[in-house]
């Protein structure tokens, strides 16, 4: 991008995750440069989500190292990782269904505040205002008092992202944010992601190939737990290995 070497936000080094004999993630070296949107694509079962689970401490890793801003993070528990600034969204919807939309976001903001463990205070107004700002960013401000399970699937997806960014991440991991969305709903999602990339580095797992090609700075392709190709969108489109992995020959 510029003359100075780009800063590295998140990096995995020889990362392995084995479930018995199955090598779900096999020797993955992955580098996320600061300020980029880096997509990971690959056929079903390639190990993309498992890779995310390793990065965020959901699974203990079998081997290898993970670095965030130069620090080793593979042994840090998930909740501390989130406070450092690595946060993910989920492939399967993972919101607080019975709470209101604004409450969903507010809970996530509050996780950063020192008052979070205090059982004898009220929720301060600043947190509520911050929550409303985030709802505006994701375009859900008009639903703020709805119970979140009553939202449409597309809006629940947006809320999922809203909860994730409410933790103020430096690195945002999005796991198939477009899963199950209609064309129309996709049109709401893309500007949101475009807005977010201005303030944070993003890793995106996605199946919608048009979306990936139009959004990404760099694309990595995973197959059977390994990264088989990496490059800018055009390079990936013309890569022989990638075609093989997707089309089977």
């Amino acid at each position: 991008m510029s003359e100075t070497t780009p800063k590295i936000a998140l990096r995995s080094q020889n990362l392995k995750k084995h479930f018995g004999a199955i090598k779900a993630v096999d020797d993955v070296n992955f580098t996320l440069e600061e300020g980029t949107l880096h997509s990971i694509i690959g056929p079903n079962g390639a190990g993309k989500t498992t890779f995310f689970n390793c990065l965020t401490g959901k699974f203990p890793i079998t081997e290898g190292k993970i670095f965030f801003e130069g620090k080793e993070i593979q042994n840090i528990p998930t909740y501390k990782l989130v406070r450092l600034g690595v946060c993910r969204s989920f492939q399967i919807l993972n919101i607080f269904k019975k709470l209101t939309v604004v409450e969903n976001v507010r809970i996530a903001i509050q996780a950063r505040h020192p008052q979070r463990f205090n059982p004898f205070t009220k929720i301060d107004r600043k947190t509520s205002e911050e929550a409303e700002q985030i709802l505006e960013r994701i375009g859900l401000e008009s639903f703020k008092n709805s119970v979140s399970q009553e939202l449409s699937h597309g809006d629940q997806r947006l809320l999922e992202i809203g909860i994730t960014i409410a933790t103020a991440p430096k690195v945002l991991l999005l796991d198939e944010p477009a899963a199950g969305l209609s064309k129309q709903e996709l049109q709401k999602l893309i500007p949101v992601i475009n807005e977010l990339r201005k303030t944070m580095s993003i890793v995106l797992i996605e199946h919608d190939i048009d979306m990936v090609l139009s959004l990404s700075d760099i694309i990595s392709v995973m197959s059977f737990g390994k990264i088989i190709a990496e490059g800018c969108p055009e390079e990936i489109q013309n890569n022989e290995k990638v075609r093989k992995a997707y089309l089977g020959d």
Partner: peptide, 26 residues
């Protein structure tokens, strides 16, 4: 207690424990 930030977190844990971990709660 249930209306405090702490209480809200408890209810969030009730609703979705995994998510609560993944937004930074111990």
């Amino acid at each position: 207690i249930i209306k405090s930030p702490f209480g809200r977190v408890l209810q969030a844990i009730r609703e979705n424990r995994t998510r609560a971990i993944f937004i930074g709660y111990n």
